[in-house]
Amino acid sequence: MLGITPEDMLFHTFAGIATIGAILVVLVRNPIYSALFLALTMCVLGAIFFTLEAYFVSVAQITVYAGAVMVLFVMVLMLFDLKHEHEDIFRITPLNLSKILAVAVMCGFLVGTGWLAVSAVNGNPGAHVAPQTVAQDLEKKELPNELPAKQTHINPDEDFTNAEDAALIDEAKKEEVVLPDPNVVASTSDAEFGSTVSLSRRLFSKYVFAFEAVSLLLLVAIVGAVALAKSKGGTHHGG
């Protein structure tokens, strides 16, 4: 009746919590509370993904960021003596001044972007497009990239014997065949959206290079971290 669906309510609640949490990360004086608010923001972002039915992304968000990265942050912060950090912020030093400058520049950017967005919507009514048209446009743009991916699919007769697999392959074929019709694409991608099957199909066919490149980058980072820790006399030096 008010034009508010339960999904809207959930989204605005979560978005509100996420925004407040993110602001508090910066405003709170104690770094441990900052880290905990950051973890809260991560969890709520996961919840937003959850309401969008992107379950895998949501759960990965929570596991990786809130469950692993932030736990390490909090753990390390708890080992520090944090009293000196408190006092330093209120001294006038070049570093502190540069921080204030950076905040001012960032605020300027935000206000500028907001103003541009608002004026774009007001000045040109066409700029405010329905989400579905955007999705269709995106799918249309993706088309040329999508078509060569057809060849990279595994040969169906080679490895799959069971009926379930045959169904999967059929489904994949169907998806490819109907691609040219934007309306049908929107509906199939709605049904498949966020499922691990469609996610992994794209991740390991179309985006496989990016995927591998990222994993290489992470490996380099890990090796680098270990090397740095060793060279500075870490705990595992010389056994």
Binding site: Y55, F56, A60, I62, T63, A66, G67, T196
Partner: peptide
Amino acid sequence: DINVGIIYIFAVASLGVYGILAAGW
């Protein structure tokens, strides 16, 4: 009925550390 039920359980269980860390600190 979450289609990634098993990872959901792992994700939420991994948040249990916060209670313990918060209590200790």
